[in-house]
Design a protein around this nucleic acid. Structure first.
Lengths: 122, 122
DNA sequence: GACAATATATCGTAAAACGATATAATAAAT
DNA sequence: ATTTATTATATCGTTTTACGATATATTGTC
């Protein structure tokens, strides 16, 4: 009973998987590096523990969103995005963008740059 | 053992919960309306079945992200965002926006408007 | 009156997140 | 040189969530 789907048709992705793909979209990385990058890319909002990280990697390998490119038997195991992984990341990124645009259009997105002063005197 | 957390500190939210909050950020709605709105807001990418929908509503009520404002015993049960729900939605929307901006900055966001013609002759 | 769409609810399964725990190698500090 | 911190990977068990199936009733339409 192989590990599965990453949600049907891979859309939508969980935020965790999204950030893993994002980190690998820039360059190939090993597990621990992914973990740190996700934390930094998400401004500390998402922290992957080992359980989440290696569980996610395992499923993503099975789904062929990533492949391992470790040369020989190194300590670090390096992963890179497959074309499929890149396509799915792109599709999910579009969803993020569309959601933000929709929210902006509905005046729901408050710019963090607008402070109380601006709200009162702007 | 009350239903729980919606992920620790409520961040990050699952895409499903995010779209439910988005639908309620615009106006109060009843369950079935939320379901339809999520589908339309996400361009059909996210479809909530009854299990997901009413399970999510139950947990969001317990977490006090939404409250029920149904008057008397109506057929439809109407929900609206609480201040907490709105704050959490806003925080999550910021995360979406930051992720998109980061991706844009890294040249990872491909505009769907740019087609092959543009890529070749632009 | 029949039928489709609306509307809510629950149950069971599967999948995912996550903390705990473990182990080992490398790098830094004393 | 030895201790200590950080890096690095892995697995196990629990909790949480998503989600399809199923059920039921109401409202609206032909």
């Amino acid at each position: 009973m192989k590990t599965q789907k990453l949600t049907k048709g891979n859309i939508p992705l969980s935020p965790q998987i999204f950030y893993v793909l994002l980190s690998l979209a820039i360059k190939q990385r090993h597990g621990y590096e992914i973990m740190k990058q996700v934390q930094s890319d998400s401004q500390g909002k998402i922290k992957l523990g080992p359980g989440t990280l290696y569980g996610a990697i395992k499923r993503m390998l099975e789904e062929k969103l990533i492949i391992e490119i470790t040369s020989d038997k190194q300590r670090r195991r390096v992963y890179k995005l497959t074309d499929k992984g890149r396509a799915i990341f792109q599709s999910e990124l579009q969803r993020y963008n569309e959601a933000v645009e929709l929210a902006r259009q509905k005046k729901l997105l408050i710019s963090p740059l607008i402070n109380k002063f601006t709200l009162v005197y702007g």
